[in-house]
Design a protein around this nucleic acid. Structure first.
Length: 487
RNA sequence: GGUCUCGUGGCCGAGCGGUUAGGCACCGGUCUGCAAAACCGUCUACUCCGGUUCGAAUCCGGACGAGACCUCCA
């Protein structure tokens, strides 16, 4: 852990302000983030949220012992646009002609693979909804006991009106129940509800349900929101430090989680609520319903129509980190290309570090530069500022290399360590070694030697032929002061 | 219709009352057989109209424009 003095401020969605971060238990942080629903392969927008919380997790890890819980939704009924309760996983299972469990397994394998590709740290625990039916039932029972839920025909609904007599509903999303539009309701299954804003805690099973569980109210399925309450309580307690998720989960999901937690355990589950912003493509939120999404694997493999070439996961991650987690980010080819070049400049400078000559004195303030990395991140995880400051270090490294700045061995160590910490441990960028394609390397050495011989004989047509031929094969020849390299 | 967020230079994107954000591109230079690459330097913007202030991209009001949520989505 870092000995940097922690002075972290976090934007709390609950208050709409940056607040000083003070963990409930000194030195420890409990964080819960809403994970994916495994009815399809996570798209790039999903990944942005997980990547952002991975960055947040990683920075917290520098200073605290962190328990990071991210659930996997493999069951649960949600309410669709027609006001019907729908089992999204069951629906996917039917359309793919698989069992629910097969669907969940299939997409979980893909999700785990994506986490590897994008270098996400595994959470401390990744609990699934289906493994916590008991706990969900217990929470529902408590809510009923407290008088905030009612049973209708084998289903259980949360009673928002009763609840708002004791607690305030809508504190997170800033919504007031009177203001919630009523027009779309009073349809189909809605008839069972006393009030349009009520939501299902338990839904009575139907004969075509693929997954079904026993409960005190008969066989059925849990509602969508209750799993998070059950699992966060089980692993982090009834009140923990950080609850995160995508902006779009704020309402109704997180709002209802708060209601469930208050309704059963008497308190808001989290001290700090954090919401990551959406990913835009062509100015619009990337989402399944709009069909303008691409898969995290497609962009890495270059198989999406939206982009003309593939981008490495590092470049994608670097690109994402250049925008603040609470801002929208528009994916465009130009922006991605700019990020790719910037990342390569960063990489080049990083490789220069070990070749740098040290001096008796340092010509700039290394301590200040290093602490600027922490200051940036302490301000609500401002990764774009961190990167800007890292580029200040890049410039210094290049200036030292050119002999226009000097650095002592001690300061160089300090800078190198800090860069490694932030580049590798926080931003999770993987910077490999140069020209590490061992098979190609000897071949390239030979080719470049031949070209060098031609150049010495001033046989420009041969040397240019080699250079152009390599360029056509996607290999760039770089003539530098200390010889020729390639990439 | 309701709630909310946002409008920054060619592009992406920070900042949120006074100081150069940063990256990419452009331009100039160093290097080079010529290029490319690399490095250095330069470029100085905040939708519009009012107001507050010694001072506003930053605060307040209005207009226009964009987006999110209100129904599943990270």
């Amino acid at each position: 852990m870092s000995n940097h003095k922690q002075n972290l401020y976090i934007y709390n969605s609950l208050s709409g302000q940056k607040e000083k971060f003070e963990p409930i238990n000194t030195g420890h942080v409990g964080m819960y983030v809403c994970g994916p629903t495994l009815y399809s392969e996570p798209h790039m927008g999903n990944m942005r949220t997980f990547i952002n919380f991975d960055m947040i997790y990683r920075y917290l890890l520098l200073h605290y012992k962190v328990k990071y819980v991210r659930n996997i939704t493999d069951a649960g009924h949600i309410t669709n646009s027609a006001g019907e309760e729908v089992d999204s996983i069951g629906k996917a299972a039917r359309s793919e002609q698989l069992q629910s469990l097969e669907i969940v397994y299939k997409y979980n394998v893909k999700f785990q693979e994506l986490q590897r590709i994008y270098n996400l740290l595994p959470p401390s625990i990744e609990p699934t909804a289906t493994a916590h039916i008991e706990e969900q039932i217990e929470i529902i029972e408590k809510i009923i006991e407290n008088g905030f839920a009612y049973i209708v025909n084998g289903s259980v609904y949360f009673d928002v009106k009763k609840y708002s007599e004791a607690f305030e509903y809508g504190t997170l999303s800033g919504r007031k129940i009177e203001e919630l539009s009523e027009e779309t309701r009073a349809l189909n299954a809605q008839e069972e509800k006393h009030f349009f804003a009520d939501f299902a805690l338990w839904k009575k099973g139907s004969p075509d349900d693929m997954q079904i569980w026993r409960s005190p109210w008969g066989n059925g399925n849990p509602g969508w929101h209750i799993e998070c309450t059950a699992m966060s309580t089980k692993y982090l307690g009834k009140h923990f430090d950080i609850h995160g998720g995508g902006m779009d989960l704020k309402f109704p999901h997180h709002e209802d989680e708060i209601a469930q937690n208050c309704g059963s355990l008497g308190c808001n589950p989290a001290k700090y609520w954090m919401h990551a912003n959406m990913l835009n493509v062509n100015g619009q939120k990337m989402s399944k319903s709009l069909g303008n999404f691409f898969l995290p694997k497609e962009i890495v493999e270059g198989t999406t129509q939206l982009f003309t070439k593939p981008y490495s996961p590092n470049v994608i991650r670097f690109f994402m980190m250049q925008a603040h987690y609470r801002s929208n980010l528009d994916f465009t080819e130009d922006a991605l290309n700019a990020a790719e070049k910037g990342f390569s400049r960063l990489t080049d400078a990083f490789h220069l570090i070990e070749k740098l000559k040290t001096s008796a004195q340092t010509s700039f303030n290394v301590q200040e530069l290093v602490s600027s990395f922490y200051t940036a991140m302490d301000d609500d995880f401002n990764a774009p500022i961190l990167i800007a400051n890292i580029f200040e270090a890049v410039k210094r490294i290049n200036l030292i290399n050119d002999g226009n700045d000097t650095i002592t061995q001690e300061d160089l160590n300090l800078l190198a360590t800090a860069l490694k910490t932030f580049l590798f441990d926080v931003l999770a960028l993987q910077i490999g070694t140069l020209n590490n394609d061992s098979k190609l390397s000897p071949v390239m050495d030979l080719v470049l030697e031949l070209r060098q011989e031609a150049r010495e004989k001033k046989d420009w047509s041969t040397s240019d032929k080699i250079r152009d031929g390599l360029a056509a094969a996607g290999i760039v020849v770089k003539d530098g002061k200390e010889g020729t390299s390639w990439s």
